[in-house]
Nucleic acid binder design. Structure first.
Lengths: 127, 127
DNA sequence: AATCAACATAGACAGACCGTCTGTCTTTGC
DNA sequence: GCAAAGACAGACGGTCTGTCTATGTTGATT
C-alpha cells in the first residue's frame, strides 16, 4: 500500500473512485475528461493499473467492464501525507502541524467548537 | 515565492539554511554530503540557484563566498504544504486535517494540554 | 457462425523533471 | 603571478508520467 508515491494524475482517478460507487474505467474517464476517446480510455486504464500495483485500488473482474474500488480511503491518504510532512519537517512530531493549522485562517467558530468537543471526546479523562 | 514546486533535493538545501545562520554553499554541501568534491559543490550551487529563482532563498554577495538566507521559514513551508493538501482533498477546508491529526497517535499528554491552551489562547472569548 | 463494438492489456513514446557533472571565468590570498 | 576556491553556464542521463498505438479478448447482435 504505497500511498506516498501516488501521482497527481493518479490522485484524480482515486478521487472519482472515492466519490462514485464501484465505477468502471469509462465512468472514471467520463468524470475526468470533457471528451473521452480511445486514448483517454487507455490513459485511465494505465493509471488504474499503476494504482492497483501500488495497492491503492482493487478491481472486480466479474463483469466485462471491471469495477474499481478504493483500498485506501481519502482519510488514509490524508493521514499518510500528513505523516510524511511531519517526518520530513519535524522529525515525526505532529504537534507543529496542528498548531499551524489552528493558527491559520479558515476555521469558523463552529469548527473551533467542534475541535474542542473532539479533544474532550478523545481524551475525556483529562477534562 | 513558489513554495509548492520545491523539490526534495532543494528542501534538503533549505533545511540546512534553516538550521545554520547564513551558511555558504560549502557549509551546505558539507552538511548534506559525507564527501564533498567539485561536482557536489556545483550541485549545491545549482539547487541554490533554483531556490533563489523560486524566491525561497536570498543571497548576500558581499563576501567572496556568498552567504545564503531563507526567504521562507519552515513554518511558511509547512503552511503552504498543508494548504495545498486541504485544497486538493477537501476543497480548501482545513478542519479535516486537524481532526485527522488529533485522532492520530503520536500526541503526548503534554502535547494535548498544550493544544488546549493554544485554543484558549487563540480564542479566549469563547472559553 | 460471423461480425462488430467495447474493454483489457502490453508496449513504446515525448516531454518534463532533477540531481549530477564538466568546463570556464572571476576573485582572493600568498 | 600563481594556485585555490567559488560562481556560473550548460549539458547530460536517468527517471517519471500521462498519452498514444496496437493487439488480444470478450460479449452482444444479426
Amino acid at each position: 500500500m504505497n500511498i506516498e508515491q501516488v501521482t497527481d494524475g493518479e490522485l484524480s482517478i482515486l478521487e472519482v473512485i472515492w466519490e462514485q460507487e464501484a465505477p468502471t474505467s469509462r465512468d472514471i474517464a467520463a468524470a475526468n475528461y470533457k471528451q473521452v476517446n480511445d486514448s483517454k480510455m487507455a490513459s485511465v486504464q494505465k493509471l488504474l493499473e499503476r494504482l492497483e500495483a501500488k495497492g491503492c485500488v482493487g478491481r472486480d473482474r466479474r463483469e466485462r467492464a471491471h469495477r474499481f474500488h478504493a483500498l485506501v480511503s481519502r482519510e488514509d491518504f490524508l493521514h499518510d501525507r500528513l505523516r510524511a510532512l511531519a517526518n520530513r519537517l519535524y522529525d515525526g512530531s505532529i504537534a507543529p502541524l496542528v498548531t499551524t493549522l489552528l493558527r491559520s485562517k479558515g476555521l469558523s467558530k463552529k469548527n473551533r467548537n467542534q475541535l474542542r468537543e473532539l479533544i474532550d471526546e478523545l481524551w475525556p479523562s483529562e477534562k
